[in-house]
């Protein structure tokens, strides 16, 4: 059973058909990249999967269960988390707080435990901290020492991207949707994030779907590549095949002329 399955999804906004008959399966442990010209509907697809939008037609299955129609926090509880193209961190909270908050929904102890500071409560707090540090450790020590308690708005752009990815992992998700994870990074940082994403899958056991524009990144880590154009899937396969597909070339070249 595939981890994620999209069946014949349709979504329009007013007169604009943003997603048109898109079907896709993602197996557990895969890294799938979605590429396509700007405006092709890639972020919309992520919004559909995470429950921010409801599809007009079609279904989304996660671990065999239908999830279209669930609210975003319910989708998160099922095990899907995402990062954002334009970064949407809790800018005035610290790095640590950003990575602790997504863990709350899995907790048992309530306010009574907090007020009385029961051992169970304290244990959970400690565990959450461990989890937070574990996720941040993917990025080396850079976010783990003094930066832990800094508010996010003092961080560099690259560090913010890393924090957001750690936050997504902290939700306890199995499936990560990464929306342009290397945007704004220089080639050195891009190379590094490419390795880290692979480690997410290899060491962390995550299944990953990512939206990207940087072809070298896509080529290096994708098991499969899916191409969207004007809301439709126009190609799918391994990187080499897709990149040489004449339809794909036309989509990019044709778009550039406009």
């Amino acid at each position: 059973m595939p981890l994620l399955e999209l069946r014949n999804l349709y979504k329009s906004f007013g007169g604009l058909q943003a997603i048109s008959n898109v079907s896709l399966t993602v197996e557990e442990g895969e890294i799938v990249s979605i590429i396509g010209p700007n405006g092709a509907g890639k972020s919309t697809l992520f919004n559909l999967i995470t429950g921010v939008y409801k599809p007009d037609r079609g279904d989304i299955f996660f671990e065999g269960q239908r999830i279209n129609g669930l609210s975003p926090d319910q989708v998160t509880k099922r095990g899907i988390a995402r990062t954002f193209q334009n970064l949407r961190l809790f800018t005035h909270l610290t790095v640590l707080e950003n990575v602790l908050i997504p863990q709350h929904h899995r907790l048992k102890s309530g306010w009574l435990g907090a007020v009385l500071r029961t051992p169970a409560y304290l244990r959970e707090e400690e565990k959450m901290r461990e989890v937070a540090l574990e996720k941040l450790s993917f990025f080396g020590p850079r976010l783990m020492s003094f930066r832990l308690h800094q508010p996010v708005y003092v961080l560099s752009y690259a560090n913010r991207r890393r924090t957001e990815m750690a936050r997504a992992m902290a939700t306890g998700a199995k499936l990560l949707l990464l929306d342009e994870p290397s945007a704004g990074m220089n080639p050195k940082e891009t190379k590094e994030i490419t390795q880290i994403i692979r480690r997410f899958r290899d060491e962390g056991g995550y299944t990953i779907v990512l939206v990207e524009h940087k072809m070298n990144l896509v080529g290096e880590i994708s098991d499969r590549v899916v191409v969207l154009d004007y809301g439709e899937k126009i190609a799918e396969g391994n990187y080499h095949d897709v990149v040489n597909d004449p339809k794909v070339i036309e989509a990019y070249l044709g778009r550039r002329e406009e």
Binding site: R88, L93, E97
Partner: peptide, 25 residues
């Protein structure tokens, strides 16, 4: 210091994303 308090601050900054991070908005 408390979780609910943190959740409140997160929601104040971005309610939609807070929801996506599992916060019961």
């Amino acid at each position: 210091r408390t979780r609910l308090g943190k959740a409140m601050r997160a929601t104040a900054q971005d309610a939609e994303v807070a929801q996506m991070m599992g916060v019961n908005v």
